[in-house]
Structure formats: C-alpha cells, structure tokens
Simulated assay, not measured.
Amino acid sequence: MADIKTQPNNLSVDGFLDKVEPAWKRDDSKKIMQLLQKITGEKPVMWGETIIGFGNYHYKYKSGREIDYFLAGFSPRKANITVYMMGGFEGHDEDLAKLGKYKKSVGCLYFKKLEDIDVKVLERMTIRSIETLKKRYADYN
C-alpha cells in the first residue's frame, strides 16, 4: 500500500514563510503559526513543501493501514489561507456561526485574511479539534 505523500521533513519553516507573498499573507501566516504553536505546545514542522504542522497523532484505518499525521496545521495557499481541522467540525456549529468570512470542506477552513475571522473563535475551534483527535485515537503521541 502506498504511503501518504504529505510527510514531515527538515525544510525550513521560516524559509518557507519568508517567501510567502504578499507581505500581509506572510504576516498573517506568522500569526497563525504562533497561535498554533501556543495551542499545541509543539514546534512547527514542514509537511510536504507547503503545509506547516504541529504535533502528531497515529491513525489506524479499518483496513489495518496506519499513518501519522499532524494535530493542527495550516498552509498559506495562493487563493486562501487553509487551516486544517483534523478533528472535523462536529460540535462546531455555534463557533462556525461566529467565525466570520470563511469557507470549509470536510476538515479544512479557508479564509482570505486573518482580519476576516475572529481569531479567538479559531483558537477555540482548534483546541476542540485537537481534543477530539486525542479522544478518538488512543495512540496519540
């Protein structure tokens, strides 16, 4: 079975962020990095070439396949900043209503600028997402 392509590596997080354009997106990304580092107590690590992840958890599929992935992470993409909510959005309806201007998919939040959302709500949602993962996966590291 093939491994997942997005793996932690030794690429420089600061080097990656220093290249993010425009400058406001670079500044927003550094603020998100500080927030996620505060929440997780973990240092940022590059996962692949464009994702910054914090911490990790061990996931075992019903098929028996196992992977390790980050607890929380983000990526300053061209169109939007993506924040990965690995615990999903169950139980987040009230916070989503208060978050601000965003879009979402199964496990991702997308927003243009940090000023478009309520950072305190993002923090609360991230904490809940991590708590969900810790409860869901007994092999949490």
Rank of each mutant, 00 (worst) to 15 (best):
A2Y: 14
I4A: 07
K5T: 10
N9V: 03
S12T: 04
L17E: 08
L17I: 09
K19R: 09
E21W: 00
P22C: 12
A23N: 14
A23P: 15
W24I: 08
W24D: 07
R26H: 13
K30V: 09
K31R: 13
I32W: 06
M33L: 11
Q34W: 15
E42I: 07
E42L: 05
V45K: 09
V45H: 07
E49D: 08
E49H: 08
T50E: 09
I51V: 04
I52C: 07
I52W: 09
G53R: 01
F54R: 06
F54K: 01
Y57L: 01
H58S: 02
Y59N: 07
Y59C: 10
Y59P: 06
K60W: 11
K60F: 11
Y61I: 03
K62E: 13
G64F: 13
G64S: 10
G64A: 08
R65N: 13
R65H: 12
E66C: 02
I67A: 03
D68K: 02
Y69R: 04
F70I: 06
A72T: 07
G73H: 10
G73M: 09
F74R: 03
F74Y: 03
P76H: 10
R77W: 11
A79K: 00
A79W: 03
I81P: 02
I81W: 04
Y84A: 00
M86S: 04
G87C: 02
G88E: 08
G88N: 05
E90P: 02
E90W: 01
H92G: 07
E94K: 09
E94F: 13
D95E: 10
L96F: 06
A97I: 10
A97T: 01
K98Q: 15
K101T: 14
Y102W: 11
K104E: 12
G107P: 04
C108T: 11
C108H: 05
L109I: 11
L109T: 00
K112H: 10
K113Y: 15
K113R: 13
K113H: 15
K113G: 12
L114M: 08
D116Q: 05
D118H: 03
V121R: 01
L122F: 15
E123Y: 04
R124G: 01
M125I: 11
M125N: 05
T126E: 02
I127K: 02
R128V: 15
E131F: 07
E131N: 06
